[in-house]
């Protein structure tokens, strides 16, 4: 299982996420080596939670994977926000 699937599974489970998408965007310009990942999480648990706190929730789940990841860029949306982005 690639790191993307691993992360998707972990995040989906921990945040009861409706939608999780993790993409490897390492291609080319890595400054440090390690994965560069893009993560989209849509979870009702983000309702009423400030952006910084949402990111912290995800960071916490991925704590042990962080050593392998150089950069993680994420979008953390509530289902309503996701709906409006579609």
């Amino acid at each position: 299982m690639g790191i993307e699937e691993e992360i998707q599974e972990k995040v989906a489970k921990a945040l009861e996420a409706e939608h999780v998408a993790c993409t490897d965007i390492s291609g080319g310009s890595s400054c440090d080596g390690g994965y560069k990942l893009e993560l989209i999480v849509v979870s009702p648990k983000f309702e009423g939670v400030a952006l910084l706190k949402r990111h912290r929730m995800v960071n916490e789940i991925l704590q042990e994977d962080m050593s392998k990841i150089h950069a993680l860029t994420m979008k953390t949306w509530t289902p309503a926000q996701y709906e409006s982005k579609k």
Binding site: L51, L52, H55, R56, N59, Q63, M66, A71, L72, T73, M74, K75
Partner: peptide, 25 residues
């Protein structure tokens, strides 16, 4: 900051966020 990555922005002594959060804000 208990935040795993650089860059990190602080305003008035308070941690605001990294790149994604700053961009979104």
């Amino acid at each position: 900051s208990e935040w795993p990555t650089i860059p990190q922005l602080y305003v008035n002594g308070e941690f605001i966020g990294g790149c994604d959060i700053i961009t979104a804000m």
